[in-house]
Design a protein around this nucleic acid. Structure first.
Length: 363
DNA sequence: GATCCGTGGAT
DNA sequence: TATCCAAGGAT
């Protein structure tokens, strides 16, 4: 039962969203939504998968490239795996790209090319968990589902001044979020809470002064907003080391490998090399006149730091070792590599801008 | 429940 | 420089 205060709070949030909703490539504005425009479930799904643990700024161009190249779920389902993995390169969490293809093909094969509109049916699809199922059901189909992501957790923890640490407090935060979800405009509501968390109720120095929930916010009243939500401490990251081997043939071709489907950087292209361990031994993939580059690659993954030594060699054009992929010079694009491998390439080519190199494809 | 799985921007 | 952390899911 939603009481009057909860009703008013939800209305305040929607009113704020009507005025401040961000213009995002995958979003139907509240005005257009009110005029009857329906979101495309394919675009909602694609954006939500890309946005898993990933910022809007990082996703935007990837979303535009994907939708330009594969405008609907049937086009994506028909795409070759390696092209999709290459297009995802640099965005991270590559299991998402593998599951993206599995999901697109399941939608085509089992649902006649149309995304199911219920939370339970969506949850059965690869790469769609509790959050994404609720987000698609709410945003694409305007079902009264409650989304619980990092933004909603933070907003609810502050609104109700909840001090129990995550993830133990998740059920309580979900209940608070559910109590706030309206039957009217649940899709806009879901986006409103997340927008609020992303732009006002931010992790550090939240802008309480301009927050539409300033008055009812209990953490604001108690002065605890900067300390919420509390989280369990994280384990420190160990450092691992490894060797990679970049061979270029006399005809310009580069020798690469397709990494195994599971595990780190699964399914992505990479240079052959050693295991990554505390103290990895050299492991040239075939005999050659390997030269060690005078600098190292440093890269940080989710749970460890990596220091990579990069060896290079020029080999005859006929060299084609078993298990390696001969990538012709004209077909090789560093942007198709995951970032750790792209850094090794950049170190070799001297284009070692530490920053990100914009990928080709748009405009 | 705990662990694995990327990346880049903000602080 | 080091840490946090982002529209999480699979195992």
């Amino acid at each position: 039962m939603r009481d009057t205060a909860t009703f008013d709070l939800s209305r305040s949030l929607l009113a704020w969203y009507d005025r401040h909703a961000r213009d995002l490539p995958w979003r139907v504005s509240p005005a257009d939504r009110a005029a009857g425009v329906q979101p495309d479930p394919y675009r909602v799904w694609l954006s939500e998968v890309m946005l898993q643990q990933t910022t809007v700024a990082a996703v935007r161009d990837y979303f535009l490239r994907f939708t330009a190249r594969w405008p609907d779920v049937r086009a994506l389902a028909a795409a070759p795996d390696d092209q999709v993995m290459a297009e995802w390169a640099g965005l991270g969490y590559y299991a998402r790209a593998r599951n993206l293809l599995k999901c697109a093909r399941a939608v085509v094969d089992q649902h006649d090319g149309r995304f199911p509109d219920s939370h339970d049916a969506l949850l059965k699809l690869p790469g769609i968990g509790p959050y994404t199922a609720a987000a698609i059901a709410a945003i694409a189909f305007d079902r009264p589902e409650t989304v619980l992501d990092g933004n909603v957790e933070r907003v609810m923890a502050r609104l109700h001044d909840i001090h129990d640490p995550l993830p133990k407090s998740k059920p309580l935060l979900k209940a608070k979020a559910a109590a706030l979800t309206p039957d009217d405009r649940p899709g806009d509501h879901a986006q409103a809470v997340m927008d609020l968390g992303a732009t006002i109720c931010t992790p550090k120095s939240p802008a309480c002064g301009i927050c539409p929930l300033r008055d009812p916010c209990q953490a604001r009243a108690a002065g605890t907003q900067a300390d919420l939500p509390r989280k369990m401490p994280k384990a420190p990251k160990p450092t691992r080391r490894g060797h990679v081997y970049i061979a270029q043939r006399a005809d310009g071709a580069i020798l690469l490998e397709r990494r195994p489907e599971t595990g780190l950087l699964g399914g992505m292209l990479g240079f052959p090399g050693s295991d990554w361990a505390e103290d990895a031994a050299e492991a040239p993939p075939f005999p050659a006149d390997w030269t060690l580059l005078p600098a190292e690659v440093r890269h940080t993954f989710t749970h460890f730091h990596l220091i990579l030594r990069v060896w290079t060699a020029t080999v005859p054009a006929k060299v084609s070792p078993e298990g390696l992929l001969v990538m012709p010079k004209h077909a090789f694009r560093p942007g198709d590599l995951p970032t750790a491998m792209r850094k090794a390439h950049d170190l070799w080519r001297g284009s070692s801008t530490s920053g990100k190199i914009p990928r080709a494809g748009l405009s």
